[in-house]
């Protein structure tokens, strides 16, 4: 090895290039090959995974051959079709969604009020952080017995637990997002004479939008889970029960394919909201703005 302490840079000959016209470089811009383009399509890659998983399911179920505990994919799909077209599945789903949206909207509204108080006063900030620290770790479903005690067996109880599951996640994320807005952007906004509500609407909310959106997504997932779980515990009344009740009912009647169909419906709705609704919002906001990859 060379003695580093006496190392000197190697003197090399100088050169100058005449830069070639960019047009001659050929590959400044080039269409991707078909394979590259196909493998760049998100949903296509995921669809392939889904197909593989579906095949594995079908193969295992056939191998096990026990309809009561593990129906095949085909049977499940048949049951799903039957229950949707002739059975109560669609109605049950709508009931669930209605309750969910009510709770979600109410939760967002309260979260908005909370964060407004939190950004405008210091005591509000303390209040919000204490409350979120207390209630965030508490699974909403744990409040169900209490809700039943207060609101009785019915939709208000469900809405109550959903609000609880949405509220803290959204409020916490929104508030964190507000706090993270850069000082320069705040000053720029104030420089235009924006103040109060206009300042929050035109500067803070768009600037904090990545975390607000993350909060909305987490809130949605929490709410959906909580609702299904709550419905599993009690069905409101058997005629107007939701998806969870559908699953519970069919388990009692040992209609396992229907149970699977109900679960599939839960997954599909969750997926659609995640990958269609929220993704569309994402594409047209934070990704377009380069605030999130």
């Amino acid at each position: 090895m060379a003695n580093l302490s006496s190392a000197t840079p190697l003197v090399r000959p100088e050169f100058e290039h005449i830069t070639v016209e960019a047009g001659q470089i050929g590959e400044v811009e080039r269409p991707l090959s078909l394979w590259e383009r196909l493998s760049n399509i998100d949903w296509l890659r995921k669809a392939v995974i889904l197909i593989v998983l579906g095949a594995a399911w079908e193969a295992y179920a056939r191998y096990a051959g026990n309809e009561l505990t593990f129906p095949t994919l085909v049977q499940t799909m048949q049951a799903l079709w039957e229950a949707t077209v002739h059975g109560p599945l669609l109605e049950r789903t709508l009931t669930s969604l209605r309750v969910l949206l009510t709770g979600y909207a109410l939760g967002l509204f309260i979260a908005g009020v909370f964060t407004t108080i939190a950004v405008s006063t210091r005591i509000g900030t303390d209040l919000l952080s204490t409350l979120t620290a207390m209630f965030n770790p508490l699974p909403a479903i744990a409040l169900l017995p209490l809700a039943l005690l207060w609101f009785g067996l019915g939709i208000p109880s469900l809405v109550f637990v959903i609000v609880h599951s949405v509220l803290w996640a959204v409020a916490l994320n929104t508030h964190t997002g507000f706090l993270a807005v850069s000082e320069t952007q705040r000053m720029a906004g104030m420089n235009y004479g924006l103040r109060g509500v206009r300042y929050v609407l035109k500067i803070l909310i768009p600037a904090a939008f990545p975390s607000i959106l993350a909060g909305l997504k987490i809130g949605w997932a929490f709410a959906w889970r909580t609702l299904i779980a709550a419905e599993l515990v009690f069905g409101v009344s058997s005629r107007s029960g939701g998806l969870g009740w559908f699953i519970f009912e069919n388990r009692n009647q040992l209609e396992t394919a229907n149970v699977f169909a109900g679960l599939t419906a839960v997954i599909i709705i969750g997926l659609v909201v995640e990958s269609v609704v929220f993704r569309t919002i994402e594409m047209h906001t934070v990704r377009k703005w380069g605030m999130q990859r």
Binding site: T184, Q185, M187, A188, M190, A207, F209, W289, M291
Partner: peptide, 30 residues
């Protein structure tokens, strides 16, 4: 006593533009 658009500031930092607006919208916004 307060910021006002009669004193427009060009900041030293690069993140002074509003990322959710295009160049044109950014210039029009104030």
């Amino acid at each position: 006593d307060r910021p006002s658009p009669d004193r427009m500031m060009v900041f030293q930092e690069f993140d002074q533009l509003l990322p959710w607006k295009t160049v044109l919208q950014n210039v029009m916004f104030p």
